[in-house]
Simulated scan of single mutants.
Amino acid sequence: MWSTRKSIVSAVVLIALFFLVRHTTTPGSQPLNVDIPISDQNAPTRPYPPPPAAAAAKNNLPEQQVFYDITSKPLRTKLEYYFPYDIEGKFPGYIWQTWKVGPSSGAFDEHLRPLEASWTEKHPGFVHEVISDLAAEHLIRYLFASVPEVPEAFSAMPVPVLKADFFRYLILLARGGIYSDIDTEALKSAIDWLPQSLDRAEVGLVVGIEADPDRDDWAEWYSRRIQFCQWTIQAKAGHPILRDIVARITEKTLDLKSKGQLRHGRAPTNVSIVEFTGPAVWTDTIFDYFNNHDYFDFDSNLQNITAQDFFNIKEHKKVGDVVVLPITSFSPGVGQMGAGETDDPMAFVRHDFEGSWKPESERMRDT
């Protein structure tokens, strides 16, 4: 075990590293934005992007103004201001994972070493960081210092699993790249996750289907009929879905805190973790985005996007600037819901699904 002094020094060094690389582009990220015209049969089902004036009007901001009092604006507006979204930019060459200690520590679980190494092996040139629990606390305070509500909410979360969920959305909003749980194995490089015919300058978020249970009792097993997984996500920094889910979780957490309903070491009794920070709220946020008039131009004949639009898909499906991958992509080998095996051409990430890989009591320890 590292001493407290060494742990703090390590965290400071890590933060300095992020400051140095915050605006760099790694060689490994360059192929992700190959300029090839779209010839995709799964054409966007939403006109995109929306007129620039729509977003400005939504937040009551002038389209061009150099200075204004951002501190008085709503949380979502502040997140948009400090973490702008550039759809035409490259997917950053970052891979983010979390664990109680880094791989250089002797306390790092030996079972996880080949899984963690697979991400580096499949992504040469990418910046691959395994963020320790202690460093995560410092990193969130640094990245979101200008939006103090966020680190306040992060620190207020009473159980480690909530912080683990929240961290993935926060790091992707601030820096972009790929987040993947430490018990996942990279089967293919992210460069190959999307077809070469798809212009990366029109994609800002890549998600996979976790559950597509075609059975009457699906609600006994899953929170949503179609459920998007959150153990692996690829994004460009500032994506509106990430901004929205960070705002939702922050507002919910601070509301519970103000009511005295957050007790250290105990999950909230009036809301489930799945609904609070997990795949349920993640799925809801994605569907809300698909059907949000602030982001898409709807015509009179355009129907809402629903779970039915993703039943039993076998290839990627693009909705606006979001690509949804089939269940095989991030859940190969599960033996149900139509998922293919790990040698399937659409299999990109294997999830170990070992509930014991990290006890909740050891996740995101409070400092």
Rank of each mutant, 00 (worst) to 15 (best):
S3Y: 06
S10V: 03
F18C: 08
F19H: 12
G28M: 03
S29N: 01
S29I: 00
P31S: 01
I36H: 13
P37Y: 14
S39G: 14
Q41E: 11
T45V: 11
T45A: 12
R46H: 05
A55I: 13
A57I: 03
K58A: 09
K58G: 00
N60M: 02
L61Q: 07
E63N: 04
Q64K: 09
Q65N: 01
I70D: 06
K78H: 01
D86W: 07
D86Y: 13
I95G: 06
W96H: 14
T98K: 13
T98C: 14
P103W: 03
S105N: 13
S118G: 05
H123R: 06
F126D: 00
V130H: 01
V130R: 02
S132A: 13
E137I: 13
L143Q: 12
F144D: 01
A145L: 14
P148N: 04
E149A: 15
A153N: 12
M157P: 10
M157Y: 05
V161H: 07
A164T: 14
F167E: 04
L172T: 07
L173H: 02
A174S: 15
A174R: 11
I178A: 06
D181S: 11
D183I: 02
T184I: 03
D192Q: 05
W193G: 02
S197A: 08
D199A: 15
A201G: 15
E202R: 15
G204H: 04
L205M: 12
D212L: 05
A219D: 08
E220F: 05
R224S: 08
R225V: 00
Q227Y: 05
F228I: 06
C229L: 13
Q230P: 09
I233H: 03
G238P: 04
R243W: 00
I245D: 03
E251C: 10
T253D: 04
T253G: 07
G260E: 11
E275N: 15
E275K: 15
T277A: 15
P279D: 06
A280W: 03
T283P: 05
T285E: 08
Y289D: 05
Y295I: 07
F296M: 04
T306G: 10
A307S: 14
Q308S: 12
I313N: 05
V322I: 15
V322C: 12
V324Q: 02
I327G: 02
S331K: 13
Q336N: 00
T342A: 08
D344G: 00
P345I: 00
F348N: 13
H351M: 10
P359H: 09
R363A: 09
